[in-house]
Design a binder for these strands. Structure first.
Lengths: 185, 185, 185, 185
DNA sequence: GATGAATGAGTCTTCATTCAT
DNA sequence: AATGAATGAAGACTCATTCAT
């Protein structure tokens, strides 16, 4: 029984599982079973579980970058842009039963030995930080102050994601959003 | 070869290992080996790994509560109290090579099935949130505004911890601290 | 279904399998199946397949040393001692369907990374070499000449074992025995 | 990307790898990767790993036969011919970091099921035996005695190869050579 | 209160081979 | 003549837990 597109099916399945339950909690066996693939087919496409994890984070990052780009290019005000991004976060959290940030969650179980994974995490985080910096530079004439506020919103954003996960509540997202908007006023 | 205090040695060993590498990444075998205990002795004291995890988080919480109590009872201003707590965080992060928050890290690999663990996490987080609320109520006459600012500082605090871990840098802690102080001005 | 003495059963089973088919050709699964043990029981007693291999070779060496000791302590002439040892070899080869020398066979699939295994092999070989040296010193007044002849008999012995294996014939053992006796005449 | 001579590249690559690490320790994947060939191309040229092994041994045998033929046809004395062959062995061992005899090493991991491989091994060994027989017939008028001495030199030769490998020393080759020359005196 | 031996189910990864194109 | 994707079986090893003593 030959199944084409194993590569894609594996990535899709793993994305779902890694996100919902965490990278370290999902085994190759479960992935290939759900993806209906043979184990050796898996390793033909991904040399290791770690590389699959990188592919997942990288793929997620691309989509997430596109979302930020769309917001940046919109005609909205800085505050509206920030609001839009927090609304994205809120939707994302509800979709995934408050599983939090895939990057932070993965970072929690990856030591410095997982170089590729760590690179993906840092790249993603820096990208979000840059996003807030850009928005704040639209709002503030002083670029130093803009970056400072951008960092604060970035931290509020991260804190909101992690605490919404920990508490299984969405007030952190709303509170962070409100704080961010206030900072841009 | 009788080893007294097996219970304590196990908890100490597990605390160190869980914190540095993560609950899911540390096995029972490693714990009992480092604690120089027999496997059956382990299960005599802790019926499961999960219960050991709860004991770890609970013990950590007690010490952390004591720290917050001391700060609250100090003669410092609200801003100074917040600064003191962020300084604690900074020291904690440096001590542990930026391993982040034990509670959030554990939450990243625990599903809702781990009721005891989840309870510890939520209790701890709520406790920190309360701590900031109390400080803010000293600073603001309007208690609603106080809680709002307290929540924001709580989120900055969480965000700082997680991003210091992700980026292995300490600017998030400094930036969050600065933001918190500004909010209390 | 608890089975005591797993450790011994594993060693016995592995000894048989490693000898008949070769260290690299026998998997842990087969060993534990034949020994009727759980996989984890295996690893409780032997931290790795490599260590099991060392235990096998070491155990074999002890028995083999005892045999040489008995020959050395016998009242036979040097030639008779050598004959006795070659007769041992002949019997051993017939017993095992001409599977040759376990040490040489294992050396054929072990690189220098397998330090423990290599140590066992070299120790065993040196022990046989010493054995022939001792016998020859009984036969020759010149100890240098004795060691020289001892080395030659050692090499004849090794060559006989390997070629009896390769050819599945026993003439090599008979020929080597004859040559050795002639050297002692 | 068309790669001509895939067949030859595969054989060359496999020869090197089989010799250095042993037939059973080298996988098809490694061979095709190093030979820069596709997996299916491999199976187009060699229906199985076993057949590739036979091709390797057969090819090696041809070159080795040529060497023996050259020695036999030389104008040297029997003792010189034997010396030349042991010198070949010495050079071969040093070139390959004392990996020993490819045929004996392969025999150590091949059961009687591998008919083709076993045939190659036996053919090769018999060929070397014949070689020594021929040389000894030049040296001895009594052809029975000649074959007897030839067999002894053959066994010394085999023993030297295997023990040089086991001990990673070259004294066995020198000792066997010396013994062989003495036998021809 | 303490122990070492035993366990089944799981981990990630590699094997030699075959398929459709 | 060449290819990349697919495969089932097996590889060594670890998991958290339970047992009898």
């Amino acid at each position: 029984m030959k199944k084409p597109n194993a590569r894609e099916r594996i990535l899709e399945t793993a994305s779902e599982l890694f996100h919902r339950r965490g990278y370290s909690e999902v085994g190759i066996n479960e992935i290939i079973a759900k993806a209906e693939t043979a184990k050796a087919s898996f390793y033909q496409h991904y040399p290791s579980k770690e590389v699959l994890c990188e592919a997942w984070l990288s793929h997620l990052h691309e989509r997430s970058e596109a979302g930020r780009k769309a917001i940046l290019e919109s005609q909205s005000s800085p505050a509206e842009k920030v609001e839009a991004y927090f609304d994205h976060l809120s939707a994302f959290m509800h979709e995934s039963d408050f599983r939090g940030c895939p990057y932070s969650n993965t970072g929690a179980v990856s030591d410095e030995g997982c170089q590729g994974i760590v690179r993906e995490i840092r790249g993603h985080k820096q990208s979000i930080r840059d996003f807030f910096h850009k928005i704040c530079r639209e709002a503030f004439s002083n670029s130093e102050r803009a970056d400072q506020i951008g960092d604060r919103i970035f931290l509020l954003y991260s804190g909101a994601a992690i605490e919404a996960q920990n508490l299984r509540e969405d007030w952190p997202i709303l509170a962070a959003r409100e704080a961010a908007v206030e900072m841009l006023a």
